[in-house]
Amino acid sequence: MSKYRIKYSQDDKVKYISHLDFLRTVNRVFARSKLPLKFSNGFNPHTIMTIGLPLSVGITSVCDVLDIELTEPMDTAYMKEILNSNSPEGIRILGVKNAEGLPPLFGIDSAIYTARFDSDKEIDIDRFIAEESITIEKKSKRGMKEVNIKDFIRSMKVIPADDTMYAVEMHLNAGNFSNIKPELVIATLAQYSGASFCNIAVNREKIFFEDGQEVF
């Protein structure tokens, strides 16, 4: 079995495509690259691919990962090159490595995001960070549920802003066990501050396994 782990970025050009659109796009990148893809058996053969952490619409990333199975081993440097030349501009392949023996992607449990935004008024982010508990409505599989958003935020800090008024870095729960969307944290911050934000740009910077290891 030849399984490879691929690290890639998604920039502004592709941030509005849905997860399903992304899957279709990546499958076409693989098809164009003519890699010896392994297909599932059955009536509708499909590639055997795992996306580490689906990216919400509107968010960019410099650290996403996926695993793909091939029928035979390939040179990882060649894979990176051929995949890049067959990817749309907004998706860049940052690295490829053999996934044999690596922890499985379902073990992902947190991610670091940066968010940059403008606000219609001055806000106190440190006060938001210092709060013990902020209750919000969160969509779960069984409808809306009240949760303390701080339970999902591992850490959060103000970082230097470039073009925008504010910038924060936040380390959030992410993955199958506990997950929060970074845009929800930002929306909560706006609501908490009684402000309205615009020019919001959220980027996923790093993804981690449970043991704190970076995923790639």
Partner: peptide
């Protein structure tokens, strides 16, 4: 354009950047 895209249905209709599009 980028500023209004978050507020419309299917923004990817307006962003281009598809494979084989010509720049």
């Amino acid at each position: 354009i980028e500023n209004i895209l978050p507020f419309v249905e299917k923004p990817a209709r307006y962003t281009g950047g598809e494979f084989n599009s010509v720049v």
